[in-house]
Design a protein around this nucleic acid. Structure first.
Lengths: 127, 127
DNA sequence: CGTGTAGTTTCCACTTCGGTTAAATAACTG
DNA sequence: CAGTTATTTAACCGAAGTGGAAACTACACG
C-alpha cells in the first residue's frame, strides 16, 4: 500500500459527497436554517431567490451526502439535520488540529497586536 | 457597515472555495501528506496515478482555497499546509456541535424513549 | 549556448453542477 | 371526481470541474 494516511479511507466516499454538498452557499444556508429546527421544502425555499425545483435538488444533494434527512408527512417533506455526518466532518478536520494549534502557539507570543478575533489564552500580556 | 450577518459570513466566499477544494479525494490526500511535512510537486504527485499537470492543478485549487501555500525555491515549489483556513473549516463545523451533541444526548435518552424536550434519568414519559 | 529537471499553462474532451420551465406525482379537500 | 397544495422528475442549457497531451517557462549545470 502506497498510502500513508488510511484511517479515514472508509469515510472517503462519503466525505467526497459531503464536502461537495457543503461547497455551496445555498446549501450551507439550508443547513443553518435547519439548525434552528425542522422545516419542510417550501419553508426552506422561502428565503431564496430560487425556484422550488432548484431547492429540491439542493436538499437532495444534502440528503445524499447524509447531511439532511427527509421524512414524509402527508404531502409535506419534513427536513432535519443529520448530526452524524456533521460530526464526521468535524472529526475529519480535527485531524489537522495540531497544525493550527502549533501555529497559534507560535502566534501566542505577539498575540497582543492581533485583531480581536479569538484570544482565549490565559495570560494575554499586552506588549 | 452593511453586514448584519453572523461571524462566519465574511468567510463564506472562502468557505465556498474551501469546501469545493476538499470535495476531492486526491486533494484531501495531498493535504494529508502535507500534514506530515512540506513537499514539492513531484513528491506530492508520486503516490497518484495522475499526470503531473493534473496534480499541479489540484495544488492550484488548494492554494486558491488558501489551504496550501507554495513558495519557490529555485525550480522547486515547496508546498505546505495553511493552518488558518483549516481552522476556519473547524470553526464553521463547530457551530453545529450542539446538534450532534444533542443527538448523543437523545441517543442516551432513547433508552427511556422520551421526547427530545428534557431528559431525566428516570423513564418519565409525559406523552 | 544547449540539455536536463521541475513545474505550469493551453487546449481539448468529457462529465457534473446549478439553474430554468414544464409536466408529473402525491395527498388532502370539497 | 375535479381542484388545490406540496414536491419531485424530466428535459434542457450554460458554466465549471477533472483529466490528458503537448507546449511552454524557469532554473541549474556543464
Amino acid at each position: 500500500m502506497t498510502k500513508t494516511l488510511d484511517h479515514d479511507r472508509l469515510n472517503d466516499d462519503r466525505l467526497d459527497e459531503t464536502f461537495a454538498a457543503l461547497a455551496n452557499p445555498t446549501r450551507r444556508a439550508i443547513l443553518a436554517r435547519l439548525a434552528q429546527g425542522e422545516a419542510n421544502v417550501n419553508e426552506l425555499a422561502a428565503p431564496f431567490d430560487l425556484t422550488l425545483p432548484a431547492i429540491s435538488k439542493h436538499i437532495k444533494v444534502l440528503e445524499q451526502a447524509r447531511l439532511v434527512r427527509r421524512t414524509a408527512h402527508a404531502q409535506y417533506r419534513r427536513c432535519s439535520l443529520d448530526a452524524a455526518q456533521l460530526e464526521a466532518v468535524a472529526s475529519w478536520v480535527d485531524q489537522y488540529r495540531p497544525v493550527w494549534e502549533a501555529r497559534l502557539d507560535r502566534l501566542d507570543d505577539y498575540v497582543g497586536q492581533l485583531p480581536p478575533k479569538r484570544q482565549q489564552k490565559k495570560g494575554t500580556r499586552h506588549g
